[in-house]
Every structure is written in structure tokens, then in C-alpha cells.
């Protein structure tokens, strides 16, 4: 500021001060506004996140539940299928009819009048597929035949 304008200087200074004050007020206001905006944004975001989580909970639990139901149904179907008698589910397609029972055997088995128990002595997990298949066929052929598995590890003296 120049020296010769001194009388006016006071008024000018006041004006400048006023201006500065107004400016700082405006700035503070802006700051407050920005802060408010940020807060609102945060709030909105949190709400969004909560809504998303709510969606995830609803969708996810529905999806899990229905998957569990489907899995249970499919397991039940499998258990039911494996519980059916062997002559309904397993067909012999081997060239020497390895798994089929001849008509002579069928005549003998159908004429049985006493109960017959076939003891199959085998370690658990070592069962032969062919024998297992054949025995289950015998079992389903007649009510008088019962096949019982005996594990020699569990009953070591059974065969004596």
C-alpha cells in the first residue's frame, strides 16, 4: 500500500478484513458441506453394503438350502436304487454268462423246503465281485436262502 493514500487505508483495510472474513466463512461453510456430503455418502455406502449383505444372506442361504435338498434327494435315489434286488438292477452281459444262474440251479433252488444259510467267509474289503454278485443272485432267487458274511478277523474260530 502506498503512503499517500493513508487516510483511505483504514477503510480499505477494514474492507479487506471484511472480505477475508466472508471468504473464511464461506470456506468453513464449504468444508462443512463437503463433510456432510462425505458423511451422507458413507452412510449411503454402508446402507448399500448392508443391503448387499442382506441380499447375499437371502440369496446364499436359499441357494445352499435348495442345494442341500437336491443333494439329499439324489442320495436317497441312489440308496433306493442300490437297495433293489440284484436281478432287477444288474444284467449279465459277459460272454460266458459268468453271472447268470442256469435253469438246473433254479429248479433246485425253487424246490428248497428248508432254510439254507450260506456263510461267506471273507475279510471285510476283500470281497470278490464275482462271488458277491452270484451270492446276491442266489439270495434273491429264493426266500429259503440267506447269505451271511463272516469276517475271519472278527470270528477267527468260526470255520472250526
Amino acid at each position: 500500500m502506498k503512503k499517500k493514500n493513508l487516510p483511505a487505508a483504514g477503510a480499505e483495510a477494514k474492507q479487506a478484513e471484511n472480505r477475508k472474513e466472508a471468504e473464511s466463512r464461506r470456506k468453513a461453510e464449504n468444508r462443512r458441506e463437503a463433510e456432510n456430503r462425505r458423511k451422507a455418502e458413507n452412510r449411503r455406502e454402508a446402507e448399500n453394503r448392508r443391503a448387499r449383505n442382506r441380499n447375499a444372506l437371502r440369496g446364499g442361504s436359499y441357494s445352499l438350502l435348495i442345494s442341500a435338498v437336491v443333494l439329499a434327494i439324489l442320495i436317497a435315489v441312489n440308496v433306493f436304487a442300490s437297495a433293489l434286488p440284484a436281478n432287477l438292477t444288474q444284467y449279465d452281459i459277459s460272454s460266458s454268462q459268468l453271472y447268470s444262474i442256469t435253469s438246473n440251479t433254479k429248479v433246485v433252488v425253487n424246490a428248497l423246503e428248508e432254510d439254507v444259510t450260506i456263510y461267506w467267509i471273507v475279510q471285510s474289503g476283500e470281497e470278490d465281485d464275482i462271488i458277491e454278485n452270484l451270492l446276491s443272485r442266489y439270495e434273491s432267487l429264493s426266500d429259503h436262502i440267506e447269505v451271511v458274511k463272516r469276517n475271519p478277523d472278527v470270528y477267527p474260530t468260526f470255520a472250526e
Binding site: 437336491v70 443333494l71 439324489l74 435315489v77 441312489n78 436304487a81 442300490s82 433293489l84 432287477l88 438292477t89 444288474q90 444284467y91 449279465d92 452281459i93 459277459s94 460272454s95 459268468l98 453271472y99 465281485d129 464275482i130 454278485n133
Partner: peptide
């Protein structure tokens, strides 16, 4: 091995569905 096992077919179909 020469056994046409329907339970296995059922098992495969359930695996596909699942």
C-alpha cells in the same frame, strides 16, 4: 467285467444332475 449295473447308471445320472 460283464455286469450291466443299473445302479451305476443311476449314480452317473445323479452326478450329472447334481
Amino acid at each position: 467285467n460283464g455286469v450291466f449295473d443299473m445302479t451305476a447308471i443311476v449314480y452317473y445320472l445323479t452326478v450329472i444332475l447334481f
